[in-house]
């Protein structure tokens, strides 16, 4: 689950899920939602393999979202993904399509106050994007 939260100059998302892979996937969907794209269901499907190992979960998370932003800059949006996360590593098979138009350009995911919090049955975080 994701929802946009107020931020004066940029945009921010609250994301929660019961699993890390759910958190990463929902954050990517939230990012695409705030990018406000006009989707095209007629576009070809592009499959990309993404692999990363990071310093910690937060860095893994920011790297993942910056990967999605990079694809958005290449006119591709994520519509499905099979994600596997183990400690601070991620392996993902991602499926992208071209979009027709994007209304908001996001420059980067930021580390501002970023903390991924694991509760008993829930993992949650807030992420600020620079626009």
């Amino acid at each position: 689950m994701f929802k946009e939260i107020p931020h004066t100059a940029d945009v921010a998302l609250y994301v929660e899920s019961t699993t890390y892979k759910g958190l990463f996937y929902d954050a990517a969907l939230g990012l695409i939602a705030i990018s406000d794209i006009d989707v095209s269901n007629e576009s070809s499907i592009y499959e990309l393999f993404y692999k990363d190992k990071a310093y910690d979960k937060e860095t893994l998370f920011v790297n993942w979202l910056n990967f999605i932003i990079y694809q958005l800059d290449s006119n591709l949006y994520l519509f499905d993904s099979k994600i596997s996360i183990h400690r601070n590593s991620i392996i993902s098979r991602c499926y992208f399509r071209n979009y027709k138009k994007r209304n908001l350009l996001i420059k980067s995911a930021t580390y501002h106050n970023l903390k991924i919090v694991k509760l008993k049955n829930l993992i949650q975080t807030c992420i600020v994007f620079d626009v």
Binding site: Y55, D56, E58, T59, V62, N63, N66, K107, S108, T110, Y111, H112, N113, L114, V128, D130
Partner: peptide, 27 residues
Amino acid sequence: GHQICSDFVRDYQSVSKKYGIELVDRG
């Protein structure tokens, strides 16, 4: 510029620690 900043903010997460700099915000 966006890519340069993203690259260095990522790398500096561990660099700050290496130099013993305590951050109140990772940004």
